[in-house]
Amino acid sequence: MNEQRAALPLRVVAGDGGASGAPTAEVYRIDWLPGTDVLHGVCHCGAERTAEDPVELWQWMLAHPTGHHPSGHHPAGPPEHDPADPPEHDPAGPGERRPTGHRPPTGHDPTGHRKEPRS
């Protein structure tokens, strides 16, 4: 599904989309896993969760950063900060817009599913 998305006709024929432009940094995604009733959610901070109820899954997702900190189930190394630490920098606060490239709020990083190394 991911590979196909790169070739949407919109991108081909309508490059001058104006305000329909590039994604911002705060994208939440839910995949309905084919062949199952399971929904798989990925927050923009990288935290993931599965559920069989979209209401429950959105509630969890949009509560970011609450509940998005690494839990004991995640296989990778220890969190870089304790979730209880005061945030170093998050002037916008939860739910506000963040410019592309901004690091996720301190203490809410998933440990098991990060795609790029932390700079």
Partner: peptide
Amino acid sequence: TPITTEVDEGAGV
């Protein structure tokens, strides 16, 4: 057919 849903909060899309 299952769907994929994305919310771009910043863009309101």
